[in-house]
Computed example of a mutant assay.
Amino acid sequence: MHSLLKRQLNKYLPEALCNESSLEELFEAIGKSYEHYDEKLSMLQRATAISSDELYDANRELEKEAARQKKVLNSLENALTALQSNFETQEVTKNIVDENFDAEKLARQIKELAQRASEMGIEKDGLLKDLARQNESLNSYAHVVSHDLKSPIRNISALIAWIEEDERDTLSEQSQQNLSLALQNLEKMDKLITGILKHATLGNKNSSNVEFNLEELLGDIQQNIFVPNNVSFQFQENLPKLCFDKYKIEQLFMNLMTNAVKALENKKKGTVRIDFKDKGDNWYFAVADNGKGIPEEHQTDIFEMFNKLENDEMATGIGLALVKKIVGLYGGKVWVESLEGLGTTFHFTLKKQEQ
């Protein structure tokens, strides 16, 4: 068992129990709770990335299968139309005896097409059920591992706080800086675990669409994130009312607005502007800043898990992956345009929903 933790436990035990051998098993069990969380975090990252890739591939297969099924149904409809038109004409007898027309062969083809459509429908149902099981397993796994990781992190944070409290007068300046750095890394790990859990379970939440005012939502986000004095927000006039899962849209805009503010840290006068267009069946939005911009070589992979826009020790590399996932859930697309030193614009579309 870690000596610091054992010392802290003994500090609050009655003197008669400090050297009690029967408590060694308890101390050992407590010590084990602080082990292996790095390994579990790595497992969770790999599981999330693998599952995301599997779901992406499965969705692509579903799209291809749907296209094949549509072709089969179109062929079936054309065959039925041809058969019906032949038997409805006044030249039925002539058509039947014509050597170029074989009603029996056509009937067999229709039967085969119907059979193929039925089989593909069964396969599609099986694939959807399998995806649902994978989602459920990933959801359960992410929650369990998240809990197992966060508990020791919080306990270690408390232990460091105790050390600072007990040794405040004897710790060197370098030791105090080291403890502060340790706390920062624990905070980063806690954020990383939270981000992974959000990404893994975002599409699995039972939620319903509600109508809300976008301007009010953006105003609430602006109040809840850190905005330095050198940064101002500009919203297009007459922002619309939207009908979506409000939580998901809040996460979407919060991540984009937070990234924009970070890009303006060294700008004397930074501006973040949000615009929209009604595209009929879709909404189009743009979140633009006049910050430092994104290098061209990083613009293709910034939406992938754990890829960061910059070397920020507290960044998790999950924010834009969440943006991409939310946009995908609503049948939209997201892309970026940026020039170094001039600014960045994130564009995305969302398919309109109904309550």
Rank of each mutant, 00 (worst) to 15 (best):
L256D: 03
P240R: 11
L159T: 13
S137F: 10
F244C: 00
H199Y: 15
I163V: 15
R154P: 01
R273W: 01
F253G: 04
Q184L: 08
I193S: 05
L197C: 02
E167F: 11
E167Y: 13
P228S: 10
I193E: 06
S180E: 07
M189L: 15
L179D: 01
V145Q: 10
S175I: 00
M189T: 11
N204D: 09
D245N: 13
I153V: 14
D148T: 04
N185L: 11
Q236W: 02
R168P: 00
E215N: 05
T194D: 15
F253M: 04
I196R: 10
K198H: 14
L149N: 12
L179C: 01
A200S: 11
S208V: 13
M189Y: 08
Q184W: 07
N259K: 01
F212A: 08
N209L: 09
L202V: 15
G280L: 06
L159E: 14
S157N: 06
D278R: 07
P228R: 12
L256P: 12
N213V: 04
S172C: 05
V210Y: 08
H199D: 14
K262N: 10
N266K: 14
S180G: 02
M189D: 04
H143L: 11
L242F: 13
Q223M: 10
N178Y: 14
T201G: 00
L217M: 13
N206K: 15
V144P: 01
F244V: 05
Q236V: 03
F226N: 13
N255Y: 01
L171K: 09
L138H: 03
L217T: 09
S137M: 09
L242A: 03
H199S: 07
Y141N: 11
S140N: 11
L197Y: 15
N185I: 04
N178G: 11
K188W: 09
K205W: 05
S137V: 06
E164F: 02
D275F: 09
E187Y: 05
S151F: 11
N259C: 05
I153P: 01
S140V: 08
L159S: 13
H199A: 12
W162Y: 14
E165C: 05
I221P: 08
S157I: 01
L183H: 09
L159C: 11
Q223R: 11
Q184N: 13
L239Q: 08
G203S: 05
T194A: 14
G280K: 06
K268N: 15
I225M: 10
P228W: 02
N224T: 02
N224H: 10
D220G: 05
E136V: 00
M189H: 02
S137T: 14
F233V: 02
G219R: 04
E187T: 08
L179H: 04
F226C: 06
S140R: 08
S208E: 02
M189P: 00
G195M: 03
D278Q: 07
S232P: 00
H147N: 09
G270F: 12
Q236E: 12
V272L: 14
S157W: 02
E237V: 04
L217G: 03
V231P: 04
